[in-house]
Write a protein that binds this DNA or RNA. Structure first.
Lengths: 137, 137
DNA sequence: CACCGATATATTTTCTTAAGTATATCGGTG
DNA sequence: CACCGATATACTTAAGAAAATATATCGGTG
């Protein structure tokens, strides 16, 4: 199973466990999701969209499309880019981009904690085959 | 945007809102998710896999694949089927199927409540463009 | 015993989405 | 002023998932 940006609770046992996914939704669908925010974080780390995309094994085009979607919905640029120059160009986060990361991470952390609660409530393995729920009369 | 089985909080305003998705994961990926459980509920309602699939605008094959996946992971049948007979055949939930619905719905309700808390914490629209975060010196 | 409506299963087609490829552009630097 | 590495954008290709199609099977019923 590929990384689908879900949040898991690693309990170690072989049973089932709850997973979940969280995103902030706007007019055109997802505004901020896990993958988008990691992309922003990688851009902050590398100072480059192409390097960030490569580090996530994502095509530049896909990364650029995601950034466009975020910019449109935010109403401002989350990433400032420049072409040419010293290293051929580059990208840095705008204040809005920094804020977007902080916002999502804040709620995503809460989300992870909530999922952990779910797993605690369920215990190790709530699922058991009810083989003979009704004993034969 | 098509139904992606996510849970939303309808706040009425035009801003962003948190959405999420919850599923119970097993060895081969999803064991119980929203769509799968609705499928079980529809089978209980109609007494037929094909009718249930049609009511969800889902192909019979897709429904059948989902049921197979659930049966495999559960280690028992969630749906009892019969071919031929009075109405050509039919399907009913096994005790395990009934239990699966109850299990998922129980935690899914908790999940919905948790997402509502997230939205409450965020308020109407936490996202604002930090146009001039740093005033010009 | 042919018919019906459903399960069961394989095969093919379509659709969507992501990846891949190509190219133009920018602007410091040697 | 050619080169480089990055942004920016269009176009083509490939992969994966879902749908559509086809067919075999079952067993009670008229």
């Amino acid at each position: 199973m590929k990384d689908n940006h879900s949040v898991a609770n690693e309990t170690g046992d072989k049973g089932f466990h709850w997973r979940g996914r969280l995103w902030l939704e706007g007019e055109e669908g997802t505004f901020l999701g896990y993958g988008r925010v990691v992309l922003l974080e990688r851009i902050r780390e590398f100072g480059s969209i192409s390097q960030a995309a490569k580090s996530m094994e994502m095509s530049y085009k896909h990364a650029w499309d995601l950034l466009e979607s975020m910019n449109r919905q935010a109403g401002c640029r989350l990433v400032e880019t420049c072409r040419g120059g010293k290293h051929g160009g580059g990208a840095t986060l705008s204040p809005a981009g920094v804020k977007a990361i902080a916002l999502f991470r804040h709620y995503h952390d809460k989300f992870k904690n909530m999922l952990a609660e779910l797993d605690q409530k369920m215990g190790k393995l709530e699922w058991k085959r009810p083989d003979r729920e009704l004993p034969p009369a």
